[in-house]
């Protein structure tokens, strides 16, 4: 609708996506050195310094921040993906399809592109 036109138009432009990807690759590079793994008491692998899209089924993490500015970001936040929240990837659809994640006690599916805007950290790095 009208309110979406301004914000919603940007993430769809291929050029914007490409810039974002490049920016994220750069961010990834600097963060790679700080990327950490940790296994908690239940044996789950918690990862940090990566985006949600890079997690494998069974892995989890805490949300550090959401990239981007558009209404897509508001949507993710409103569905409960706020900083400090624990997310776990339950499964990923075949052929690089959407992810099924557990957040705030419910199951949410989102596409890989949407998940790549969700940056993860250890809880203590960005406690709410």
């Amino acid at each position: 609708m009208k309110n979406n036109d301004g914000d919603g138009a940007t993430p769809d432009k291929p050029s914007t996506i490409r810039t974002r990807r490049r920016r994220m690759q750069l961010a990834q590079h600097s963060l790679d050195r700080t990327e950490t793994f940790r296994t908690d008491t239940t044996g789950m692998l918690t990862r940090s310094g990566v985006s949600l899209a890079e997690l494998k089924p069974g892995e989890c993490g805490f949300i550090a921040r959401l990239l981007g500015q558009s209404s897509g970001k508001i949507r993710l936040l409103e569905m409960g993906l706020t900083p400090g929240v624990h997310v776990k990837v339950l499964r990923i659809a075949a052929f690089g399809g959407p992810l099924d994640i557990e957040v705030r006690g419910y199951n949410l599916s989102l596409r890989r592109e949407e998940a790549s805007a969700v940056w993860l950290s250890h809880e203590e790095l960005d406690a709410p």
Binding site: D12, S71, L76, Y106, L108, S109, L110
Partner: peptide, 12 residues
């Protein structure tokens, strides 16, 4: 073109 697609969907 330009309308943002989204697949944010609850799996009830």
């Amino acid at each position: 073109k330009g309308v943002s697609p989204s697949f944010l969907m609850e799996l009830p």
